[in-house]
Write a protein that binds this DNA or RNA. Structure first.
Lengths: 342, 342
DNA sequence: GAACGCGCTGGAACCGGTTCCAGGCACTCC
DNA sequence: GGAGTGCCTGGAACCGGTTCCAGCGCGTTC
């Protein structure tokens, strides 16, 4: 492997000049610049990343921590991080915590030492567990899909997404909407619930039915569907698309027609949402773009940490339809002991 | 940030001794070893990866190149690579080529400089494009899901998977099976076709109907379904699960019952395969394990490159059923101009 | 008691770049 | 013609580790 020393010798200049020439620094004559470029090309010179990192203190690498690479949500974010990093000449070091928040400190520490900045996508991490991790990172951190004081972040306008979904369902005549929630420790579930609270108290007679918390997976959706059916819900808004897919599957299995009997709305607009039958109405969230923005936030050294909130958009597909004229007793009542009306 | 020099001073020993103590090298007294460990802990010392890489020549990092992180197939491989790398104290640098084989040389070169070894998962790359890339990597390379001379690889026993699928379908009475193939440049499509050839010539009267090559996606499956229907096929074996999911969706949309009218078999056993309706019968392929094995192959410096072929297993779910008693003219004939009988 | 060997130790070289700093040269301006 | 200015240039220090090698102290053996 050719080193800079070889290039300098070949070009007949000193090490310092060769370095300056290759890094487009000033104080190099055009002739020497040319000579060095020629020599580097001839020798197939490629700078040694570790050597460069040692002196400059910058590795040209960003880290990405996600709970599960196989989850399409995080995969989409990872793609965004990846592509933006590549565009800006950086590589990405990725860590999958396998949904185990207890390994995060270790993962973050290990990654933090080798990167210029860390994109952290840990929706399930409790808010109070976050600050110590930021210290462990030992460098700039950008959060995806959650917000915290003093840390730059990219999140989504969840409240608006919830509003769009609710407006859509209410316009279809569903004045009671069931919510199949996500994990309690999840920041974004909190946002959804806050938005639902605000929107149901503001409305006249419209209500939101809290089905509870479910694992943010297909299996969680299966459970939620049974509860929704027991409560007689005609419309279910789900924490995310995976849950919605589970709801769809369970309704189908129990012989309940979607969207004729029950409408279902998801969140995220994961690739599969458009492919299932019936195609899922869902709140599209710019996952890849969030990944890209996160990378940019790392670069922009932030005196005042920037919080970017990306717009979302409801995409109406085939899983929602007008409510059937309701039978009075098939509607949940406020006194129903099994579910809480918000 | 504390450096080794600080640790040495704190422990009252030389730089050399401190280094030896921390790396468990011999020629350090027990007392000093203890002193150094104590000092390192007190100072929160963490070795500087770039400095270490510069002298040792090893980065403690493996690279992974995949066409698309959002594709569940590659996501599963990535998870395997990730977890095995972590277990063995290495980090993983990941690159997504966005299904563009023309960027692979660049990606591999850039990654190759910063890693100890590269896991390459590029199913769509033509065989003759491979050798130059291996040179560009500038280090050990392990291939996943394809084989090539002189390069260690992990692949799957595709022939056996095809056999299991065919046996299953034939046992159900489908003596003509349509194959919805993948991209021609794909190594694994070649394997499937070779296996199908072998198995159909060997059989008596059984045949395999080549529907052609499709993009290895849901959309490809939609196209394949139309051709399968046109050919009057009662059983379709698909290049992979994404295609199979597309076939399922299209059959459903066209009012064809699965599995009653047409049986469908996938390949890979991606997570979604178990979740769709009807649940997909498919050849399960140990994706994550392949990723893990690939990482191990990188470590074992290979004088004779090792080719590991992992076993696969048909999982029978709900998308396959006995063939309906055939109407003579609904069966494709050898003279049907639209399709080739193998 | 002297020669020998062995284990521990620290000084120094080295990995491959970047960058500070002093020096040199040509050119301009008084 | 001499001083001053500015651009290039290369020697050398430095980043933070690892490792070679010479030296030293101690215990052993004849």
């Amino acid at each position: 492997m050719a080193t800079l020393r070889d290039v300098a010798r070949e070009a007949g200049v000193s090490l310092a000049t060769a370095s300056r020439a290759l890094s487009d620094a000033p104080h190099v004559s055009a002739a020497n610049r040319e000579q060095v470029a020629r020599a580097a090309a001839a020798l197939g010179y490629r700078p040694h990343p570790a050597a460069r990192a040692l002196t400059t203190g910058s590795t040209g690498t960003v880290g990405l921590v996600v709970p599960d690479l196989a989850n399409p949500f995080f995969a989409a974010v990872a793609k965004g991080v990846q592509s933006r990093a590549r565009e800006t000449g950086r590589e990405v070091l990725v860590a999958d915590t396998d949904e185990d928040v207890t390994v995060e400190p270790d993962v973050i520490t290990r990654l933090g030492d080798r990167v210029d900045g860390l994109v952290l996508c840990s929706p399930r991490l409790p808010a109070d567990a976050l600050p110590p991790l930021l210290g462990a990172a030992g460098g700039p951190v950008a959060l995806v899909n959650r917000e915290a004081p003093d840390v730059p972040s990219v999140s989504f306008d969840i409240a608006d997404g919830v509003r769009q979904a609710l407006d859509h369902l209410r316009a279809l005549g569903h004045d009671v909407v069931a919510y199949a929630g996500g994990p309690r420790s999840s920041w974004s579930d909190g946002e959804r619930r806050a938005a639902l609270d605000a929107l149901s108290t503001a409305a006249r007679g419209d209500a939101v039915l809290d089905l509870g918390s479910f694992r943010p997976t297909h299996g969680g959706g299966v459970q939620a569907a049974d509860l929704a059916l027991a409560a007689g819900a005609t419309a279910v808004l789900c924490f995310n698309d995976l849950v919605a897919l589970g709801v769809l599957a369970r309704l189908h299995a129990r012989g309940v027609a979607t969207p004729d009997d029950v409408s279902v709305v998801g969140f995220d607009d994961v690739a599969a949402a458009a492919l299932v039958t019936p195609a899922l109405t869902t709140v599209a969230v710019p996952l890849a773009r969030a990944g890209r923005v996160a990378v940019d936030l790392l670069a922009g050294g932030s005196p005042a940490p920037e919080h970017r909130r990306l717009p979302v958009e409801l995409v109406v597909r085939a899983s929602t339809a007008p409510a059937a004229p309701a039978l009075p007793d098939s509607r949940p009542s406020v006194t129903d002991p099994e579910v809480a009306i918000r």
